[in-house]
Amino acid sequence: MDDVKFKRFFASLLTIIGIFVVLFACAAFMSDRPVLGFSITKWESIVPFAVGIIFLLSGVNLINRS
């Protein structure tokens, strides 16, 4: 039972982090000024977007499996 709670906590944490990273990447893509102190070009915003999608999908997948 304790293992299921840990899986759900970890999955929700991954999902929340993924959502925030995807939103950051979208804001960085749309803005010409630095976002949260990071100066990211439009093409460089692809990397945090991809990482956010990976975190988001793995978190959702882990929630569905537990």
Rank of each mutant, 00 (worst) to 15 (best):
A27C: 09
R33T: 13
P34Y: 10
C26N: 09
S31R: 11
M1K: 09
L36Y: 07
S58P: 00
V60H: 02
W43N: 12
V47N: 04
V21Q: 11
F29N: 01
R65L: 12
F38H: 13
V22W: 01
D2R: 13
E44Y: 05
I63W: 10
L36H: 02
S39H: 14
S12R: 11
I16D: 02
A11K: 01
D32W: 02
L57E: 12
S39T: 15
L62C: 04
K7M: 13
A25K: 04
S31C: 04
L56A: 05
L14Y: 07
F20A: 09
V51F: 15
A28W: 01
C26W: 10
R8N: 10
V22H: 03
I63P: 00
D3M: 11
D2G: 14
R8K: 13
S39K: 14
I54A: 13
L56K: 04
F9L: 11
F20V: 08
A11W: 01
L14T: 04
V35Q: 05
I17A: 14
I63M: 12
V60A: 08
F9T: 08
I17E: 05
C26I: 15
S12N: 13
V22D: 05
V51P: 01
I19K: 02
A11C: 06
G52F: 08
V35G: 04
A28S: 15
M1P: 05
D32P: 00
S39W: 09
K7E: 11
A25P: 04
N61V: 08
V21Y: 09
G37M: 14
G52A: 08
M1D: 10
K5T: 11
V47L: 11
S66Q: 06
G59M: 06
R8E: 13
V4N: 07
L36P: 00
P48S: 06
S66Y: 07
D32I: 00
I53A: 14
F20L: 14
F10N: 01
K5Y: 06
P48R: 01
A27M: 13
S39C: 10
S66W: 02
A25V: 09
F49N: 03
I46V: 13
R8I: 11
L13G: 04
F24E: 08
F10D: 01
S66K: 06
G37Y: 15
V47F: 12
V51R: 04
L56N: 03
I40Q: 05
I46F: 12
V47H: 04
V51K: 05
R33I: 08
C26A: 14
D32G: 15
N64Y: 10
I17S: 06
S66G: 15
I46L: 08
F6L: 13
S31I: 01
F20C: 12
T15Q: 09
L57W: 12
M30D: 07
A28C: 07
F29E: 00
V21S: 09
V47Q: 06
G18V: 00
